[in-house]
Structures are given as C-alpha cells and as structure tokens.
Design a protein around this nucleic acid. Structure first.
Lengths: 335, 335
DNA sequence: ATGAAAGCGCTAACAA
DNA sequence: TTGTTAGCGCTTTCAT
C-alpha cells in the first residue's frame, strides 16, 4: 500500500504508451497534430494511469492561467452575492475559474489585488470595492486587465461598470413627486462612493426644481436591514417628518418598511412612501412589496465579462468606463 | 512606450542587486538564511522593479499551491452563500485562496472536482452537492483531501460535515406536538439527499409515536420561496388540511407564510404552524418571525476547515464524518 | 552566506 | 507526424 501516491505526469504516460512527452502534450492540446493511432494509444495509457495534465505547469509556458480573480465586498447585500453567482457561472462557461478573495475593508482591496497578481490571474474583477490607484497601476504594469463593478477610480487605466446613477436619481424623484410626496429623507450608505454621490447629487438637483419639495433628512452610513429599521424610528422623532424615504439599498428599505408598518404603525404608502435600490427578490415578496430600482445586473455582468475577456485577448485594447441602464419598479410601498 | 511590459522575474532582480537568483529566492522565503546586507540590497532592487514572486512557478517546486477548491451549489439559499462567505474569510486568514466553481446539476460536481484537481488545489470543499464515488476516489489517489458539507457519500475516503439530522427531526416534532399540532405536512427538497432523508425518517418515527398525530402530506422537490407559496395553496385544497408545516428550508417557510397569511388569510400560528430550516436572517424579520432550526454554521465551517487543513498537513490522517449540533429557535409562526 | 546546477511538469521551436 | 532540445520562474541540494 503506497503512502504517497506518485502523481502521474506526462512522462509516465509517454513511457506507458511508448511515445515522447511531446506527443502526450499534443494529445491534450486541442488542434495539435497527432496521428489517430498514436492519439488513441496515448489516451488509453492516460486513462489507465489516471493522468490529468497539470494546469499550473502548463500556464507557466502558455502564459495564461484561465484564472480570473474576483474581489468581493458587501456580502450582506444579496444583490452582490447574486452578482458573484452570475460571474462564476458565466466565466465558468467561458472556460475560466474564479479565484475568490474577500475584502471587508477598503484597504484590503489592494492586498487582494496584489495576491491575485501573484497567482498570475488573467484578469481581475472587483465588485463594489475600490482598490488604490497604485494597485490599479500595478495591474496595468503586469498587463492584467482590471474592471471595477459599481465603483470607479480617478485613474484611467481601469475599466468600470456602473449604472446611470444620475438618471436613477432623477427618475426616483419624478416618481415620488408625481405621487404627491414632498418631504424627502435620504438614507445613504458609503458617502465616498462615487456611484452613490452621483445619485444623491441628481436627487438634490431634482428636488430643488419642485415647488414645495425639500430634503428633510440625509443620513449616511446607513447600510443594512437593522440600520434602516432604526433610522425610521429616529426620523419619526424629528420635528419635520418625511413623507418619502429614498434608500440606497433594498435591504435598508425593507428595514424601513418593517420599522414603519410594524413598530410605528405608519400607513404605507399613504402616510409614507419608501423606495429602495437593487430589486432583490425579497423586495417583491408579498410581505414587503417595496418600490425599487431594478439594477440591470445581467447587463452589468455582460459588460464586465466582455471587457475583461476582450482585454485578455487584445492587451492593447484600452480600458473604459461603461454604464448600464436601470429602471424603476413601482410596487405597493409608494402611491 | 512599451507595448508588452516585460514581467519582472527573480532573474531581473538578481541582476539589479548583483546577486544570484537563489539569493533572491531566499529573501522571499521566510526563515531562509540571507545576510542582512544582501537581503536589503535585494529588497531595494525588488521594490524598484516592482517584483512579485510567481506563486504558480513556486508551487511547482514546493508542491503546495495555497489554493483550496470550493464547489458551490444552491446559490438561491442564503444559508449557503453565507457559508461561502465564511469559508472565504476563514481560509483567507489561514493563508489560502479559494478557487470557486459552481455546480448546478449534480453531475457537474464531478467535472468541477476534476477541474480543481488540474489546478493542483491543496484541498477541496464541496458544499451541498455530492460528487460521485469515482471523483472522490480520484481525489484520494492524488492525495487531495475532500470534505463534503451537508452531504454524505457511501465511500469512506471522504470527510463530511453534517448536522445531527435525526435529532433535528425529533426536536421539531416534539415542539409542534407539544403545542398541540397534529396534522403534519412535510415540504422537502431533494429526496435523495441523505441529510434530508435522515431528518424525514426521524420525523416520521416521532409522529408515529404520538396518538392522534399523522402526516397528511409529503411533498418533495419543494425548494424555494415560490414553491413554498404554491405548496400551501395546494395543501389548502386537500380534503384533510394540515395544521403544521415542516419545511426543509427557511426560504420555503417564508413562501408558505406569505401564501398562508396573505393569499389565504390563514391564522398563523393558531390555525397553522410553520417551521423552517436554517435560520437565515430574513426569518427573524418582523414581517415573518418564522420558527426555525438554527444550523450551527460557524461550527460547521470550523470542522470543515480544520479537517482539510489537518489533512493537508498530514496526508496520512484519515477522512471522517463529523456532525455539528443544531438548535430550534421558537418564533411567532408556531404556538 | 552564497552561487552553480538540477529539475518541478509542461509546451514550443526545430529537425528529422 | 514525431522526437529532441530548450526553457517558463521558481526552489533546493550541494559545494564553496
């Protein structure tokens, strides 16, 4: 009984089949020229020995790993886990594997990107985190395409996929104002995220244009369900209560809804309108029916994947910002 | 302007620092002996050139990749995405990276495992999918530890982490029977999953022991929210309506709850009791308050990770089945 | 403490 | 079509 089962290499297979290692290599390289008879001999030998080519050794010479690094943040948000799933499935279909790294703090993103580079990933996708300009530069220096999803950098060596955030902001205000709401409260997440800032700016501008409308509260760092639920309590204590709440995530919106309906017995949507962002499945559930912005997740995935793959295939192709189109889904949480 | 920026290798660094490549290697190998002065020269050169050791080339010779393969199924279930997150964070802390593969059909699991082997992962974790005995054997042959989470195999060359499913079943019935429920309906997922089968057996046995109690329905392949919601409608048409529903996932339970309360205006918990499985965050939300079984996710992660790492460190260590302890969380969906 | 040489498992020119 | 040779970037004896 062998303790350390020797790994089978092309060498062993070659010996077994009575050919050279190159022949073995060719047999496992699609489109290489091998005589049918030898190929069969080799396949038989390989099968008998249980041979599997070493993808890492291979990558050393072909200079391609079929590995894509993905840096993930905001695991709490189902929108992003769904994204992860779709990226994984899509890239798998395209013949790539994902190397997954989690970056909880923004500083981690850099470390994650650097680690990925050491593993010679063919490309890097960063979801909802922002690596430093230095890290981006390093990718560029290595010729590794980098694409940011739902985040942008100042640097121009990085591709990014975002939504048309300004328009989202405008659409939300239009919907709410049209339904007669006037006193808006903003529940925002990370105030430094460009994508959120654009939306907020647009909202402010749009509100300013409507007579009688104003923003009565603007809370930042309000991320999840619990925060939303707490926020509505606080807002309801204010001298001037809002009659519409704009959240930067569905999760927050659901928290607000529970806080409003259950804790405070507020009449939604008549006394208070709520809109979320993301259109996660729960928002459509009967218990919630949250009006929200459906983010074009499929389109975003598609743009991101096509961009990395294209830049892998053609290193001279330059990175660029891309924007996908969102649309509002009206439900029972607004009039 | 360089088109194809040459990758910096230890060779370049050695030249720049005026030393040999071995010296460079030693500098980047913790615990190797290098004179402080040379080390500094080398670090300076490396820094200047932006050198990063190639982890793949390294792995070829040290025969360790610091890569762990993870095969993921059931992405719809937040319980499992949470697991993925915890695995990712934990293993990252331990100095490993995850190679993530998705397997939607059971047959895919095999392909996934084989792909991972080609990437020379140090270990494989399969979450809620069941690779074939052949695939498991292949891992064993390569000396790659394999651990199944929430699933088991007949073969004994594989570790597994599950819950004490029989006890869960007994506890659920005890709770419901104690609250006076008698007509049970079972909403199950994959009927071939051993873990679910054990629980179901225990439930049946426990119900049989209670006078007047019986199982009035047993539906299989009922997985998600929508299925749960549809199921309760169907059940309510039956001649004998259940007064308690036991679901094999929280998501199903939430669907049942919405179907019952909203669609059918059933009085929960008096007319109908509902219990889920998993204790996902939503189950605790005010709108739902689903009584459920809290699965010991942290303990499961811990067992799985410790097992892989231990078997990586000591290839002679034999695989084994492990079981973690669940506990029931009583909420408003049962009396 | 350091360098020379060998080799991990593979592919790619090049000849034959 | 096939084998020989060289080498991807790294680590590791083995001398020095």
């Amino acid at each position: 009984m062998k303790k350390q089962p020797a790994k089978i290499t092309s060498h062993e297979v070659a010996a077994e089949a009575g050919v050279s290692r190159s022949a073995v290599s060719r047999t496992f390289t699609p489109g290489a020229s091998v005589a049918p008879r030898t190929r069969e001999k080799i396949l038989a030998a390989a099968n008998k020995l249980g041979y599997r080519p070493n993808a890492l050794a291979r990558s050393l010479i072909v200079r391609r790993t079929q590995l894509i690094g993905l840096v993930m943040a905001e695991w709490e948000n189902p929108f992003y886990t769904r994204m992860l799933r779709l990226f994984s499935e899509r890239l798998q279909d395209e013949g790539y594997q994902l190397v997954l790294l989690t970056s909880n703090t923004e500083a981690d993103a850099d470390k994650a990107v650097r680690r990925l580079m050491q593993y010679q990933v063919d490309g890097v996708i960063v979801v909802s985190a922002r690596p430093s300009a230095a890290a981006a530069k390093e990718c560029a220096a290595n010729g590794t395409p980098l694409v940011l999803v739902n985040r942008q950098t100042a640097g121009r060596r990085t591709s990014s996929v975002t939504c048309d955030n300004r328009r989202i902001g405008e659409d939300i205000v239009a919907l709410l104002a049209g339904a007669g709401y006037r006193r808006f409260a903003l529940l925002r997440g990370d105030p430094t995220a460009i994508t959120g800032a654009d939306r907020t700016d647009a909202i402010r501008a749009a509100v300013a244009k409507i007579r009688g409308a104003r923003i009565v509260a603007d809370l930042i760092n309000t991320f999840g369900y619990d925060e939303g639920r707490r926020a509505i309590r606080d807002l309801w204590q204010q001298p001037e209560r809002p009659d519409a709440i704009i959240c930067s995530s569905d999760l927050t919106g659901l928290g607000v809804l529970d806080g409003a309906r259950t804790d405070l017995r507020i009449d939604v949507p008549d006394e208070l309108g709520v809109v979320g962002l993301g259109d996660i499945p729960q928002s459509g559930w009967t218990a919630y029916q949250l009006t929200t912005v459906h983010l074009p997740i499929d389109e975003m995935i598609d743009l991101a994947v096509k961009d990395v793959l294209a830049r892998i295939a053609d290193p001279d192709r330059s990175p660029r910002p891309m924007v996908a189109n969102a649309r509002i889904v009206g439900r029972a949480s607004t009039r």
